[in-house]
Amino acid sequence: MTNVNILEANHVSKSYAAHKALDDVSITIPKQSIFGLLGPNGAGKTTLIRIINQIIMADQGEILINGEKLKPEHIRIIGYLPEERGLYKKMKVGEQLMYLAQLKGLSKSEAKKRIKHWLDKLGLYEWAGKKVEDLSKGMAQKIQFIATVMHEPDLLILDEPFSGFDPVNANLIKDEIFELREKGSTVIFSTHRMESVEQLCDDIAMINKSQKILDGTKKDIKNSYKSHKYQVDYKGALGPLSSQFSVLDTTTVEDDYSQAVIQTQKGQNPNELLSELITKTEVHGFMEIIPSINDIFITIVEEGKS
């Protein structure tokens, strides 16, 4: 049986002295997906990632990679870009990449080829003999990325990848990540800035206060948290609507243009609302309000509190 999931975490728990960092967390990551591990700072994301990277060990539970229990050889198929990242400042770019590649188990000749390939690709080849301290910050970030991906990992784990990357590099790296995914890699994004990965992810797990509070495909989650609200832009006045619709809020945009948020009933076709609106006002815009991942997170946390 071929495994459809590159990674499964089953009931993983981890405590540091008195503090519980992870509490019975289970996640499943399908192959070739882009997976968002989301949650505020201190929720336990980095702890889970460190367990996957075998930097620390879980107190309870197990991690399966391609269906196999985690073992030392697995670090070769994982590429990890930690949140706290850096390079040896006094070391030359080429030597540094060679060292990191060899630590990941690449042979010297293979590493040499790939370093050349990647440096060429990101336009850094002439910098190979320079020390890292002579590089600009953006260049150093690219080198870090190369170090993470040059052993062609099946599983790429990026912890807060876009913090510290400038926008140009962030875009470049997004493109590279999509390319790697096309070639068969699976990507885990871990971040507290949920809006930054919203459009990238196929699957999502949310962690709050060391517990998983939600997971699934992004599409399903968004659908199940839809609030059946619509945003309407109109000109002039909005006449009273029938009782199945309620106007939650109206704001004047400019002159006689206004915007309203209208609640419909679950299961209602938006055309019903639209056809009624046409009779009541001059419609300029009509759009379903889809909650952002961030909104969903806040909703769940609020629900959990009450």
Binding site: I78, E84, Y88, K89, L100
Partner: peptide, 18 residues
């Protein structure tokens, strides 16, 4: 200390046991 302050240590320990 250098490895710690240059923040490379976590990259390294994802390949090598501490």
């Amino acid at each position: 200390l250098d490895e710690k302050t240059s923040r490379i240590v976590e990259v390294i320990v994802s390949s090598v046991r501490p």
